[in-house]
């Protein structure tokens, strides 16, 4: 009890100004990229500064942090996915490759947060659907190691896609898709996802539905 109280008193209040989005791709017109744009608009009009880490980016260069291995189409990530899905047992080489890229991505996350002095991160679907296992695992370890305030925005889950049902990575899925850590607040896009996240993982969450374009609020 004394140890817990000491830990609580040592915790510093977070003064949040700089916010870092993290995803596999933040570019083009896919749903996740569009939603990031809307969230960033809302944040910036409330005087927060937004930054972006992904494997593909079309945001302002001075706010961007490109990490090629974060992309789900990176050849090494595609190879890992091929080795993990559609079979029930994993090769040792696949575990090694996954861990190696995970460590590299975790290093990149530390560099990103340091470079832009980021106070809060928003992983966009990267901790929900396993398009990039090493990225999700790196994020989970990074959050566990730093305790950084995190809003995990979830658009899809692995259990919604039949192609993920037969796999050799239940341990990875349970670790990172989604993770359950004290500094993460979970946001989903509809009430069905909310119920499923609570039912399957016991994780409480908040529903924030996708937005209509900006014109709606100006009418």
């Amino acid at each position: 009890m004394k140890r817990i109280m000491t830990m609580l008193t040592q915790q510093q209040p977070h003064h949040i100004k700089n916010i870092g989005f993290i995803s596999t791709r933040i570019a083009g017109t896919d749903g996740v990229s569009l939603e990031i744009q809307k969230w960033a608009e809302v944040l910036e009009r409330n005087r927060y500064h937004c930054f972006y880490l992904a494997g593909e980016l079309d945001r302002a260069e001075e706010k961007s942090f490109l990490v090629e291995e974060a992309h789900f189409e990176h050849p090494l990530i595609q190879q890992i996915n091929n080795d993990l899905f559609g079979r029930g047992q994993r090769k040792g080489e696949t575990s090694e490759a996954t861990q190696k890229i995970k460590d590299k991505l975790k290093g990149a996350l530390y560099g990103y947060v340091k470079k832009f002095d980021i106070h809060l991160i928003i992983p966009e679907n990267a901790l929900s659907i396993p398009m990039n296992f090493p990225l999700g695992m790196a994020l989970t370890e990074f959050i566990a190691e730093t305790g950084i305030p995190t809003i995990a925005h979830r658009h899809d889950f692995s259990w919604e896609r039949p192609r993920f049902l037969i796999n050799a990575c239940v341990d990875y899925l349970n670790m990172a898709f989604p993770p359950y850590l004290p500094s993460i607040k979970h946001v989903v896009i509809n009430s069905i996802a909310s119920e499923q996240l609570s039912f399957k993982r016991g994780i409480s969450n908040l529903v924030m539905m996708h937005l209509f374009p900006q014109g709606l609020s100006n009418r």
């Binding site: 949040i16 607040k185 924030m208 209509f212 900006q214």
Partner: peptide, 30 residues
């Protein structure tokens, strides 16, 4: 009907709705 749908969308899917929830969520960390 169009006006009815617009009012529903404004109530549940506008930037102001997101703003209220998201800023509150961020401030809960502070």
């Amino acid at each position: 009907m169009v006006e009815h749908n617009y009012q529903i969308a404004k109530r549940y899917f506008s930037y102001e709705v997101l703003e209220e929830k998201l800023i509150h969520l961020i401030r809960a960390f502070e």
